[in-house]
Each structure stands twice: as C-alpha cells, then as structure tokens.
Design a binder for these strands. Structure first.
Length: 870
RNA sequence: GCCUGGGUGGUGAAAUAGGUAGACACAAGGGACUUAAAAUCCCUCGGCUGCAAGGCCGUACCGGUUCGAUUCCGGUCCCAGGCACCA
C-alpha cells in the first residue's frame, strides 16, 4: 500500500471505476425499496459556488447512506436554465443567452463531476431545451382550457426611459438600475394560474408533511394566510346620501353617475366595525379615479402614488400618505357618514383594494388618523377585570370617548365591545357573529373566509424563457396552440439590447389562427422561470419520454423521498411545486396504480402510496455566508470552490463543508479549517496504512476481551450507533464526523498489538471507513480495497451495532448539591436507588456543601445524576 | 412594516426529551524531532481568583417557572432569510 495520501490520483481512479461500472444509473426495481433523493437544481450562472457544494454534498451523503442501507437510490441532476442573468450577460458580453447558458452548463457539469457525486447523469435535463419545455406548454394549454389559467391586468414596475418592465431586484431606491429613471407602476395584461383554487388543499396538506421542518410549514401557512372575518358594504353616498339602487325599485341598475353604489371592504375585525371613522381606498381604486375627475389636487396625489416599485417591502416601509376624496360612504349599521380617503398603504391587489379604518384598534389606521386629524373612537376595552371594573359587577362608565383623553396608541388585542350600542359587553366572537348576522340581514355583507394568497402571474416580458403557447386572433380571441404544433420553439440565435428580441421578430410572432385559419399573432411573453422548476422533479423519472409529459415510471419514483435545498426557497418555489404536483395529479399524469413491467412479487411496495405531495422529507440547508450576508453573484462575494478542490481534493472540500456546521444552520465561510479537514484524511490514510503493512486480518466479532480492547469495542459500537442516528434521523453530519474523529483518536493511542488487538483494530478501521464513506467516498473506496483486499466498497452494507459490546458493568453518576456540580461516583449498572442515594450522601464533597443541613429532597436521574436539595 | 429563523470561548461549533456548558475541530502559545524549514507528534487554551486543592462568575440583555434552564415562558436588543418579476 502506498504510504502517501494522494487525493488527485485516488479521486480520478474512484470516479473512473464508478463511471465504468455505471454504478449510479438508477433502474426501476421493485425488489428493493426506492429512495429518490433530489437536490434543488442549479441555475447555470457560470461556476459552482459554495452553496452548491454544500447542497450537493448533503444530497450525496444521504444518497450514499441509503444505498448502504439497501435502498434503490436515484439521484438526478439538471439545470434551471432560463432566467434573467443570461439576458444581462448577453447584453454585457455580446453573446446569445443560449450560447452563454450552454457553455456554463458544460463547465459546471465538469465541476460537479469532480465532486464525485453519486448522480445518474443519464437523466440530466435542461429546462431551456424544447423537449423539456414542450410539456410545460402542453400543460399550459390544458390548464387554459380548464380555466385554471386566465388573463387579467397586473401592476408591474415600468422604466419609462428604457420602456421595459423591471424585476423588483432591478429597482434600486425607486429607480431603474440601468437608466436611473424613476420607476412607475403600470398595468399590463398577464396570464395567471389559479393557485387560489388550491389554497385550501395547499394549507390542509401541510398537516400531512411530518418530514418537513416546522419553520417552513409555518411560513407557508402564514403566506397562504387563511383568515376569518367579514365583508362589509359601505353605501356610497350621492352628494346628499341618496342611494339609487335599494331606495328606488324602479332603477335596478346603478345610475351612470353612481358607478359604485357600494364600497366593499374585507375585515378580520368585524367586532370593531362600530369604531370605523373613515374608509381608505387604493390609488388605483375606481372610486379614487372617479373622484379625481375635476379634482386636480387629488389627481396629482394619485399620480404620485404611482411612483415607486410594486414590491411589498417598499410599499410597507414608505411614509404613509393620503388625501381626502371629498366623497362619503354610509356606515351599514349606524348610518353615519364616513369620509373616503385615498391612501398609499392600501394595496389594490389585496382583498377589495379598500379598507375600513378603525384608528383606535389598528396601528396603521391609528398613525394615519393622528397624522390627518381623523376621529379616533374606542370601541374595545381589555377583557377580564378591565380598567373600568366590569368584572366585579360595576356599571361601565357612560361614555369613554368624552371621559378619556385620546389613547397614546392603538389597542389591537381582542377584548370586550364598548361604545358600540347593542353590541356593548360582547367579546370578540360574540360581537363578530352578531355584527356579521346584522350585515347579512341587511344584505350588506356577512361572514367571509379570505386567503392572503394571490393568483400566480406567470407572464414575463422577457426573451430567455419558455414561450407562452397562445395565439391571439382578432376573431377567435386567445387560442391555445394545439398539441401537434408544440413546442413553440424559442429562437436561440439572437442578439439582445433593451427589450425582448422575439417581440421584434415577425418570423416568430406572425402566424395563423389554429381555429379559423385567419392571420393571427403569437404571444411574445414568456413564462416565469418558477414554472420550469415546479415540475422538473417529476420529469427526471420520465426524462426520455417523448410522447407524454410523464409515464408510468413517475408512479414508481414519485414522490421524492428527500428534497434538499436552500431555506430561501421555503415559500415560493416549494409552494409552486406543491401546487403543480396537485395540478399534474388532477390532469391525470400520475396516481393511477400502474404496475411496472416485469415486476416481481412485492406487495408491500405496491400498496397505494399518497401522491398528493411531491416531497416527503425536506431538508432546508442554511445559507453559505461571507462577511455576514448571503454568498451570491449579485453581491459579488462568492468564493470559487474550484481552488479548494484543486489544492486538496473533493473529499477535503466535502468533509470541510459537512463538518463546519449542521446542514440547516447558516455557515460563515472561512478559509481556515480546510487544512484541518485535509489533515484528518491524511491521519486516516496513515492509520490504515500502518495497519495494512502488518497484514490484514479478520475483524473481531466479539467474545471476552481485556479491558482496553473491551473499552475500544464499546467505543466502536457506540460510534456506529451514534453515526447511524446522525445520518438517518438527525441529518446532522458534523457530529457524525466528530464521533469518528474521536474513534480515530482512540485508535491512535491504542497500544495492544496482539492478534486480538489487531482484530479489534481491523474491526474499528472497517467500521470507520464505511461510516465516513458517504461523506468522503473516494478515499474510503481506496482504503476499503486495501483493508479487504480488492473488495468494492459500493457492495458493502452498513455496519451493525453489536448490542453485547455496548453493555457496561459500571456507570458514572454526577453529584450535585442544590443543582451545582460537586463530584461524581461510579456505581454498578443496576445499582438500586437507595444505594445510589446512600453513596451520594456519604460523598465527602457533597457533605461539605450540605453544610450539615438535612437533605430536603434527593433527585435521582437514572444513569445521569443525583441532586441533593438542602 | 409584516412573516420565519438565529445569537454559546479568539473562531466554527457540541450538549439528541429540562440533567456534568464548551465534545470535535480551527487559530494561538509552549515543547519534541530536524543543520534548518516543512510535515508530524506532545502539552496549554471561557473569565476572575488562588501557591495549590479549589472557589466564584459565565450560553445577547432583563425578568419568570423549576431541585436543576443554552434548552421552557414573557419582554428587549442585534443579525439573517422571505415578502409574490433574482434564483
């Protein structure tokens, strides 16, 4: 055996062996349980970054571990190849987005291969290839026909100088990133996917995902945001408050002068309705537009509201501003005349684009009312023995408004109604029910359930994306492209300046209507790249299927057993993929129990499995940070892992990434520590070398041993137990590595070179190599062949814990007095509680700290400690 | 602003169901080997205090529950991720 650890040579040899034996090509096989392990595919930005190395190493560790456990593992890889950066690079470097993307893919594929990942490369896909996006277009046409995709206006960031739509990240301090022009909001027609039709199921099914982190499920629940409240209709007052509709049965339709007979709002606090003192509408609201006619000041304010980006974070942090429209509405219950304001904090895209304002019980309304001198009316007081002593039978004070100064802040908690007429004394639920019932009786509202989730706008006015398969015909309207004409191919040989080239390319957009045969134009918008990444996991199963989106192999491989990716995808990507999974299920693409051809008899595997969710187990890896923020290309703080791989090898890179932090935590990059990982691998190599040079032997399998060897065998099997738990249940690899390091430290100190000693050493080294193999597969492949002359590590099964080796005769117990550490005792494994208490109380140091006082209580935690309380 | 996480030595971290805080490493310092360097090996390594044995303090901050809190609860501060057109 070679004395030196030479990573470059060892890794080349191991990878060649895996390639030649097609070791990682996955085949459907019902004789073994399947394990589909998927890491989020990369955007081909140019080079791998540390986040990729971390992500793909985690996936590889889990894949290889499950292979050792006897699973039929599939680990595929592909490219999320459409997207904005390719267009930017195209303009900057005068290269077509397609060419740039393909060359990045080639380079990054090489980098991934050098990491030694156990990937089935025959399933590789790229979302920018027509044979992939054809099926996305096909599904689009199906959903369009079913009404699950529809068209409506949506607000975008508009750069008035470049005359283009800007992504939120392209708006910097309210200006276009290239032109520097002040960005405006503009409404354009877009296609929307009706994700809200699945809101209830997307919410409910989170409860069936025990393998997902609570954090992610909570974020998704809040994002979907199911709320219970009421719809309230405020009657629009004509100049003198006469209502055209209800007051006069002869005019069933609203008069043209009153296009808004009622102003609808949604509230989660119907109990505060009696405290509403004004109503606020969004600048884009029809009522605002109408009121602005002949009111130049208001028109100017509405114009001002259109400045700035559409991003919610910007909307929510800007200064709250408003202006009175001069219009009034009538409160549906008390008949009061309330002013209508236009406010920049009311979002048109959410709810009805209008809110009732209750300043006393909402922070934003409170601040707004203070700023503009609007009335604040308290209608809720704290529950229980409140400040007015309601709890002890006293009468409430007559009028809190006249007797109390204006509150310092809004009281937003639930409480008891006051100053609310017939609703006084009711709590949140009672008041909400009563008020909703009264609204219902007057046909002016009632209980409603509302979701925060909005439909998904998928149109993008960009070039480098999947073309939307719609043809616009003057006679027939929007006509989906028939299946026989799919895919609608995106021309790849283009030059970019500002704007999408296919919008200026008659050869692309001029066509005929599939329905009437008349002249027509293709849609030139492309789809959001989130659409491609919403279903790629399913296509890996049927990667080469040419006549359908998916085939019966999807039934075998789905759902993904383990999905791994960055926490930044916790909401959008993971929600869209869950949505798509349900769409594909409902279109009938999978779920029917088709047995595989030539399937052996394994009924357990044919038991119906749930295909309602795409990802059974989810691991959200923490971000790789540099200087305290996310390592990303746009921030220019990436560290190229290539130098690390070139200098130390893939195993060192993998070991370091897995050892530096547990997978879910963020990891602050530092160059230090890499050397330490490399040193450990050298020590591992040397330990096996020294052993092998004396000749390999059969591994110890148990029996009576001297104390030193017994202790060592205890440690070997405790390590196997711990590492197995760390890989399988805890998915915490840093502690698995630490445990093997501890074992190796003990081996280095072992002085027994007898035949028995060498047998225990053989057992220890064999165990250590398999335990480390998922993380550092190349060196382990080489060392295994030395330890078990010529054997292939890939054929090995996971080491088993020898329960007999874990039996200890004596255990150590910690002694505490009043919870403070005062010593320890060694007792027999099965010592009685009385014996333990007696020994603890007899301990001199315990007695010293008891200071002669009697023991009030003795807490004995079996196997752990004794705490004497005095 | 809203939603979700996080904060432990000089550094990355560990403590798995409330039970010995700092495992395992990195960096640093000291030593061995060497003509020398590298490599390797050994020792020290939270703070204060003490000749020592030891003692006191210490897990962002303030408070609570408990025999016992890094862990649970309430509040505060700071950092990170997401906020629907970055991926």
């Amino acid at each position: 055996m070679q004395a030196q650890y030479t990573p470059a040579e060892i890794e080349r040899a191991a990878q060649a062996l895996w390639d030649e034996s097609k070791a990682f090509q996955a085949k459907e096989d019902s004789a073994k349980p399947k394990y589909y392990c998927l890491s989020m595919f990369p955007y081909p930005s140019g080079k791998l970054h540390m986040g990729h190395v971390r992500n793909y190493t985690i996936g590889d560790v889990l894949s290889r571990y499950h292979r050792f456990q006897g699973f039929n593992v599939m680990q595929p890889m592909g490219w999320d190849a459409f997207g904005l950066p390719a267009e930017n690079a195209a303009i900057q470097n005068k290269v077509a987005p397609a060419a740039w993307t393909y060359s990045n893919i080639d380079y990054m594929r090489g980098q991934l291969k050098s990491l030694g990942l156990a990937i089935d490369w025959t399933r590789e896909l790229a979302t920018c290839k027509p044979d992939y996006y054809k099926w996305e277009q096909w599904l689009f046409t199906k959903l369009f026909e079913q009404g699950l995709i529809y068209k409506k206006l949506a607000t975008v960031n508009w750069d008035p100088v470049d005359c283009t739509v800007l992504a939120n990240e392209q708006v910097i301090d309210g200006r276009g990133w290239r032109s520097g022009a002040l960005v405006e909001k503009r409404d354009i027609p877009m296609y929307f996917m009706k994700i809200t039709a699945y809101a209830e199921e997307l919410l409910k099914d989170l409860d069936n995902l025990p393998g997902w982190p609570e954090q992610v499920k909570t974020m998704q629940r809040n994002w979907i945001g199911k709320s219970f409240g009421a719809e309230v209709c405020f009657l629009c007052s004509e100049e003198l408050g006469v209502r055209s509709e209800e007051g006069n049965p002869n005019t069933p339709h609203p008069s043209p002068l009153t296009p808004h007979p009622v102003l609808k709002v949604y509230t989660t606090r119907p109990d505060t309705l009696m405290g509403a003192t004004y109503v606020a509408v969004a600048a884009e609201h029809a009522l605002a537009t109408e009121a602005a006619r002949g009111n130049p000041e208001l028109a100017a304010f509405i114009e001002e509201c259109k400045r700035g980006s559409v991003a919610e974070a910007d909307m929510a942090t800007m200064e709250k501003k408003g202006m009175d429209t001069g219009r009034f509405v009538i409160h549906p219950l008390n008949g009061e005349k309330l002013p209508v304001w236009v406010a920049n904090y009311v979002l048109m895209g959410y709810g009805e684009g209008a809110v009732m304002a209750v300043p006393a019980h909402d922070e934003r309304d409170f601040a707004f009312a203070k700023k503009y001198g609007l009335p604040i009316r308290q209608v809720i007081r704290p529950a229980g023995d409140g400040e007015w002593g309601m709890g002890n039978g006293q009468k409430p004070p007559p009028s809190p408004i006249t007797h109390h100064p204006l509150p310092e802040e809004a009281m937003v908690e639930h409480g008891i109604c006051v100053n609310s007429g017939k609703y006084d004394g009711l709590d949140f639920n009672q008041a909400s029910d009563a008020i909703a019932a009264d609204l219902e009786a007057k046909a002016l509202g009632g209980k409603r359930t509302q979701f925060r989730l909005r439909d998904w706008g998928i149109s993008r006015q960009r070039y480098w994306g999947c073309p939307i398969p719609i043809i616009h015909c003057a006679a027939c309207g929007d006509v989906p492209v028939p299946e026989k004409d799919l895919p609608v191919k995106l021309p790849e040989d283009v030059t970019l300046d500002v704007g999408s080239p296919i919008k200026k390319m008659p050869s692309f957009y001029q066509t005929v209507c599939p329905k009437c045969g008349g002249k027509a134009e293709r849609e030139t918008d492309t789809m959001d790249t989130f659409v491609e990444s919403s279903w790629y996991y399913a296509r890996y199963a049927s990667h080469d299927c040419s006549d359908a989106m998916l085939d019966e192999r999807a039934n075998y491989w789905l759902p993904v057993d383990q999905y791994i990716g960055g926490i930044e995808h916790a909401i959008l990507h993971l929600l869209y993929a869950r949505f798509f999974h349900k769409l594909m299920r409902d279109v009938g693409l999978f779920g029917s129990p088709l047995p595989l051809a030539g399937e052996g008899a394994n009924d357990a595997l044919r038991a119906p499995k749930s295909l309602d969710e795409p990802f059974t187990q989810l691991l959200t890896q923490g971000m790789v940070l540099k200087d305290g923020t996310k390592m990303s290309k746009s921030k220019g703080n990436t560290v190229d892992p290539q130098a690390l791989i070139d200098q130390f090898g893939a195993d060192t890179a993998r070991l370091f990434m897995m050892f530096a932090a547990p997978p879910e935590q963020s990891l602050e990059w530092s160059d230090a520590g890499v050397e330490g990982a490399f040193r450990f691998l050298k020590r591992l190599w040397r330990a096996v070398h020294e052993h092998v040079e004396q000749g390999v032997v059969a591994a110890c399998t148990g029996g009576a041993l001297p104390a030193e060897l017994k202790a060592l065998r205890f440690q070997i099997h405790a390590t196997i137990q711990r590492v197995t738990d760390d890989y399988g249940r805890r998915q915490q690899f840093n502690t698995a590595i630490a445990a093997v390091m501890e074992l190796m430290n003990s081996l280095a100190k072992m002085g027994d070179h007898s035949a028995t000693g060498r047998a225990v050493m053989q057992e220890a080294l064999e165990s250590a190599i398999v335990l480390l193999a998922p993380i550092v597969p190349h060196i382990c492949q080489a060392l295994w062949a030395e330890l078990k002359v010529g054997a292939n590590l890939l054929d090995v099964s996971w080491p088993k814990v020898d329960a007999a080796a874990l039996v200890q005769d004596e255990i150590e117990l910690v002694l505490q007095v009043n919870g403070k550490l005062r010593g320890s005792i060694t007792v027999a494994r099965d010592a009685a509680r009385e014996t333990i208490e007696r020994l603890a109380l007899a301990n001199p140091n315990v007695q010293k700290f008891m200071e002669g006082k009697p023991a009030k209580k003795v807490v004995v935690v079996p196997g752990r400690l004794v705490n004497v309380v005095v």
